[in-house]
Design a protein around this nucleic acid. Structure first.
Lengths: 219, 219
DNA sequence: GTGTATATCTCGGGG
DNA sequence: CCCCGAGGTATACAC
């Protein structure tokens, strides 16, 4: 805890005038300077790996990209050190990967008669979440998001543009169409999807999980 | 500093097994739980506004959206409180807004003969950074980024699609074309821009600032 | 290393 | 409140 002023020069330049702040240095060397409010993001920081030079009330933290964080200490209120050891880490449930996993197992919940061809179908411009076949034999690209917003529609549009230029896919089954799947889809995203000729489906994560309680108990 | 285990239930669910961690509570009530590494992002957190219920070695932090963070304290190593007061705040230079400001004052550096019509031209799908007129009287939409990547090209494409459906603009001056401006533009973004018929211009922030040293000394 | 997508993104501005 | 865009985004993962 210290009264300090700070300067950062790197990807941009910034300046912090003198005030009381918390300076946190972690075991990996990363540095964060926190005010007494404003959520978890520090005012300034320097990620590991970096090097710390301490000299006469001034800390200079620099990394290999030529970025520097200069902390001038005007008054130190408290200086405390603790060794925490390795953290067992955070276990999560409900991220996009889990939603994708469920939908890959239950493609018919997206659209009746839909079957899975491949998950994470690789293309030069990124992976297509699900590649499916519909009841009429048409190929369907599915983009999955937890929250359906405009950039997800753009992403699906890009994939379709790419897939429809891939003759190995189209010569046998014709054009590829797209379905945008999310737990909630914002009105703007729905509008854009419809002007692009894309389908929109909203799904319920808990209901999906309930449909496969045996093998998908992640928690 | 405490040996603790944590559970979060809200936008997703997560679990942290027992370990030594730093628990930070700021003046606005926000809570963050840090491991001894891993940059500035905490393992778990709860933003303000929230309410904290303390009961017998267990903290329950909840907000109005029904999210809860449950911290079980197994052993407290240190408990320290400091009042830091208001922070004077962070002053920045070199963000996109400054680049836009410079380019609005110096549109001819993007393309010879280009003049500014309007900055932050509002549309239903978001603001167009610069709307300009070229030497031939054609309307030009300019999208500005610090770093030119694919999503910036998508953004500009969306705006052009919208503007070219706006008859009040097109009936007098014809179609609107687009220029993508950034300090550096990635090869992929250049390729996509060219297939979409968009211009690409890379600009030098420091050189631009040098061209207007009088009124634009921000720092 | 670049390129792409995700995030309890965070944060701020405008309607 | 939502929508939209910027961020020193950070972070993970594939190529």
């Amino acid at each position: 805890m210290a009264r300090c002023s700070v300067r950062y020069a790197g990807r941009l330049e910034s300046r912090l005038d003198e005030a009381l702040r918390l300076i946190m240095v972690k075991a990996d060397g990363c540095v964060a300077i926190h005010a007494d409010g404003g959520a978890y993001k520090p005012l300034n920081w320097m990620n590991a790996p970096n090097s710390l030079a301490v000299a006469d009330g001034e800390w200079i933290v620099s990394n290999t990209k030529g970025e520097t964080l200069t902390i001038t200490l005007h008054e130190v209120l408290m200086d405390s050190e603790h060794h925490l050891g390795e953290d067992p880490g955070l276990a999560k449930d409900g991220v996009e990967a889990h939603l994708q996993e469920l939908l890959a197992a239950l493609p018919h919940t997206i659209e009746e008669g839909l079957t899975l061809i491949r998950r994470e179908h690789a293309t030069a411009i990124g992976p297509v979440d699900l590649l499916c076949r519909d009841r009429n034999g048409m190929t369907v690209a599915v983009e999955i998001k937890r929250r359906g917003e405009i950039d997800g529609v753009e992403q699906l549009s890009r994939y379709l543009e790419y897939l429809n230029n891939d003759s190995s896919l189209t010569k046998e089954h014709g054009a590829v169409r797209g379905i945008f799947v999310a737990q909630v889809i914002k009105p703007q995203a729905k509008t854009l999807a419809s002007t692009r000729g894309l389908g929109c489906v909203e799904v319920d994560y808990d209901a999906l999980r309930g449909a496969k309680p045996d093998e998908l108990t992640l928690f």
